[in-house]
Design a binder for these strands. Sequence first.
DNA 1: GTAACTAGTTACCCGGAAGTAACTATGACA
DNA 2: TGTCATAGTTACTTCCGGGTAACTAGTTAC
Lengths: 124, 124
Amino acid sequence: MTQIKDQGILRETSCSEELFAIRDSLEILGGKWKLLILIYLKNRQDQLVHFKMIERGIQGISAKMLSKELKELEINELVTRTIQDTRPITVTYALTDYGKSVIPVIEALVQWGFDHRMMIKKTR
Amino acid sequence: MTQIKDQGILRETSCSEELFAIRDSLEILGGKWKLLILIYLKNRQDQLVHFKMIERGIQGISAKMLSKELKELEINELVTRTIQDTRPITVTYALTDYGKSVIPVIEALVQWGFDHRMMIKKTR
DNA sequence: GTAACTAGTTACCCGGAAGTAACTATGACA
DNA sequence: TGTCATAGTTACTTCCGGGTAACTAGTTAC
């Protein structure tokens, strides 16, 4: 089984615990766009990120999907939505501290996806 | 951006590289069952794992889906399928070395899913 | 001969995820 | 007054991931 940190203490998970944990992760991070949005926000933590910026930055996403996914990320407290008192009014999105906890997951997936591409290049 | 290992050397990814990498990962590891199957195999690397064992071990999965997902995992060289010369003939599945490279991804997702559950427990 | 085991395959169906396009509301600018 | 921008919403539609159930095929045990 996998070693996890449980309140700072290393312990082994049980098999069903792992299956539940993965199911939880997939429920919240799954789907076509959520991880892409989180990456986008992660890479611009120094900027004010507007709705339209994300829409333009993630190729293929529609306003409808972006709106829906951002709402769900906000509900799960991974992202904050802030209305800026500008003219015209703008809205900015940012990772919460909790949202930043997803970064190791993203990094693992990015590394694996990158390795996979290298592997395919070599063997074909 | 994320630091990745590129042929053993640390370097920074570009933003679009990250998006491509994640898309690759999700294409191969995405869906409802693939990661669960990989976990199942990871936790039984010392045993001969038969089709029916997985079917029984992962609650909710149907023979059709299991068959389909295993085929795709085999095509992507994450899993091997071995026909055993027994009576009746049995088939065993195992992680390839390449399949084992997914373990860090699984561990990251398990840890996050576990943390998420703890977080919800605390705040509600 | 028939029931039960292995390891699947096939046909059919459904719901929800996602796409498209049009629309709203507010304000700025010219 | 009309056009463009931001930040979405709504209605309609399509697609396919996944579920169910029945079926194949080889072997063994009763």
